[in-house]
């Protein structure tokens, strides 16, 4: 593990200036990703998952304020890079797959044009070569009759096919890092599993690092090497997938895990767990643990700055309790 991490993020914050005050959407998060690894970022809507991935790509809307102690791609600090340098990275060495396949393709151009563009922007290749690469990748993402698909327009394809096209487009330049922001949320359940399988297979085949943003813990259990659990703009717990699932240490992670049915353990008719309450407002200054209003273990100390506990294996959680598993819930 002496190799430089593909992505290193330290103390990333994203603020959204609003009329009512500043919304601290992402509040100092850290994570690291090595070649070939899959990091799943889990959390509910509004926890800052998507903003974090956009920030890595340098695609945040300009009115948002983004800062970090470190935001490095293969050792190169991305903050302060000129727009042209970021453009050369985007789509080339880091690529992104979005949540909305129905609207993420340009309706005015053919699939072939849009796929070829991804390669033509970064490589000195002829149009014919770019199209050949497009056919190759459409085959890889499981699209049959790839040749004839090239001249089709997005509106002629189903949602599942469009997402396959989006994946093929992201992989045109064989990126080292792929960020998939809830890539299966907008799809049918049967298609979701296929797309996910495909994504993971391709990731292993190409030895890419992948950030998978999701709120589906079932997905996380199947594909993640590392997991970061986000709540209200903070990573409340992170570690290897094994540790997160076997020894969840933050009360929020524990709550999340109680929400999913486990075959064999959940009896028919039994109520699944749920976490009462709603996510607090992040406008203005946020102090202490953001989860305390919904937490069974909350104490007065939770309103003060919260320490981070770390184990030697890299498992870390942000809670005043050093070992919440022993505390009866």
């Amino acid at each position: 593990m002496s190799e430089e991490p593909i992505l290193a993020v330290e103390g990333l914050t994203i603020d959204i200036p609003l009329a009512q005050g500043t919304l601290h959407a992402v509040r100092g998060i850290d994570f690291e990703l090595n070649r070939g690894e899959t990091l799943c970022i889990v959390g509910e809507s509004g926890s800052g998952k998507s903003l974090t991935s956009l920030a890595v790509m340098g695609l945040l809307p300009k009115r948002l304020e983004c800062a970090a102690r470190k935001l490095a791609f293969r050792g190169t600090e991305l903050q302060g890079q000129p727009a042209s340098a970021m453009r050369q990275l985007r789509g080339n060495r880091m690529a992104m797959i979005f949540q909305e396949p129905m609207t993420s393709l340009n309706p005015a151009y053919t699939i072939g044009d849009q796929l070829a563009e991804a390669l033509l922007l970064h490589r000195r290749v002829s149009k014919a070569e770019a199209r050949a690469r497009a056919v190759e990748l459409l085959g890889k993402v499981g699209i049959t009759a790839a040749e004839s698909r090239l001249s089709q327009y997005p509106h002629q394809l189903s949602g599942g096919l469009r997402q396959r096209v989006m994946i093929a487009m992201a992989l045109m330049c064989e990126p080292e890092l792929v960020i998939a922001d809830e890539p299966t949320t907008a799809l049918d359940v049967t298609i979701q599993a296929q797309i996910l399988r495909l994504l993971v297979d391709l990731q292993r085949e190409m030895n890419m690092a992948m950030i998978l943003v999701t709120h589906d813990l079932g997905v996380v259990a199947r594909v993640a090497d590392k997991v970061a659990v986000m709540y209200a703009g903070e990573v409340v717990e992170q570690g290897t997938a094994k540790e997160i699932f076997e020894h969840p240490s933050h009360p929020y992670t524990q709550g999340l895990l109680r929400c999913i049915p486990v075959p064999g353990r959940t009896k028919p008719g039994e109520h699944l767990g749920s976490i009462p309450g709603i996510v607090p407002s992040l406008i203005g200054k946020v102090e202490g643990c953001a989860f305390r209003t919904r937490c069974d273990l909350a104490e007065s100390a939770c309103a003060k700055p919260v320490p981070i506990h770390r184990t030697q294996g890299g498992h870390a959680w942000r809670c005043i309790h050093s070992d919440t598993e022993r505390v009866p819930a």
Partner: peptide, 15 residues
């Protein structure tokens, strides 16, 4: 504001 404009930027297309 359309999603496909974000896609174009994510590909590395210039302004």
């Amino acid at each position: 504001n359309a999603d496909y404009i974000r896609t174009a930027r994510a590909k590395g297309a210039g302004e």
